[in-house]
């Protein structure tokens, strides 16, 4: 585990320059013609369809577990009424965005790397070039924007489902009065908390897509190359998401 993290971190450092330049190119191609709106929608659908079920399930159980754990701690000090607020804060600020990002990496990100990598080794990317189509503009840019939209949507969904899970545990199992739960939650959770999570998830989306498409786009060496690229993309993006979450939290939110 530690070794895998270390390897991921080293790979991240080694590739970070390439990934960053790749992202800049994909971003700048937003302003070149033709605008690929249909592909953009198609990729939102792809990311969503791949991830929503697992995101929902993990969010539901995280919300429920968080409610349990927090209630344990709170029983010692009295004050179970803040439970709703604490669960909501944890979810919207941290668990929602990070968990969603990790699920998206595993489900959609890996599939994206594999798809682009196989296009690379079977010369389909060169074929695009030959047909005078800019492969970054065609393959990467629409996916980048799709992730910028899809991750916040999935994160909002995760927040909602997670809070619902916490609510169910708190009222039906722990027997806390729902009225008090909600009024305290409203006091404690500000719009900024929710928004900070949403901003994070946008950033994660950009990061994940940059890593996963870069790894696919630079694949070499046949079918094993595709497997290697996919594994690396998953390791780098999940380690990266965790590191970025820590940095973003301490710096800004």
């Amino acid at each position: 585990m530690i070794a895998a993290l270390g390897r991921g971190f080293i790979a991240l450092l080694r590739d970070s320059g390439g990934i960053f330049i790749f992202f800049i190119k994909a971003f700048l191609n937003t302003f070149t013609r033709p605008v690929r709106f249909r592909l953009f929608l198609k990729h939102i659908e792809f990311i969503g369809v791949k991830s929503w079920l697992v995101v929902s399930l993990t969010a539901l159980f995280s919300g429920m577990v968080t409610a349990y754990q927090v209630s344990h701690a709170l029983i010692k000090f009295g004050g179970q009424s803040v439970l709703g607020g604490v669960v909501a804060l944890t979810l919207t600020r941290e668990v929602g965005p990070v968990l969603t990002a990790i699920v998206v990496v595993a489900r959609a990100g890996s599939a994206i790397t594999a798809e682009i990598a196989s296009m690379k080794i079977t010369e389909q990317i060169d074929a695009l070039r030959i047909m005078a189509v800019n492969p970054i503009q065609y393959l990467i840019t629409p996916r980048l924007w799709a992730a910028v939209v899809a991750l916040p949507l999935l994160t909002a969904m995760a927040d909602f489902i997670g809070i619902a899970g916490g609510y169910v545990v708190a009222t039906f199992i722990l027997g806390i009065d729902p009225g008090i739960l909600f009024s305290r939650m409203k006091e404690m959770v500000e719009l900024m908390d929710v928004l900070s999570g949403i901003f994070k998830s946008m950033f994660f989306g950009i990061f994940i897509i940059s890593v996963c498409t870069y790894k696919g786009f630079t694949t070499t060496g046949g079918a094993e190359g595709v497997g290697r690229a996919t594994t690396q993309a998953v390791v780098i993006s999940s380690v990266g998401v965790l590191i970025a979450d820590y940095i973003l939290t301490t710096l800004f939110f």
Partner: peptide, 17 residues
């Protein structure tokens, strides 16, 4: 611009799968 005047048939076809 030049490439629009040139066709290239890849060894394995490179069809979009």
């Amino acid at each position: 611009k030049i490439r629009r005047k040139i066709g290239f048939l890849f060894q394995e076809g490179a069809l979009f799968d």
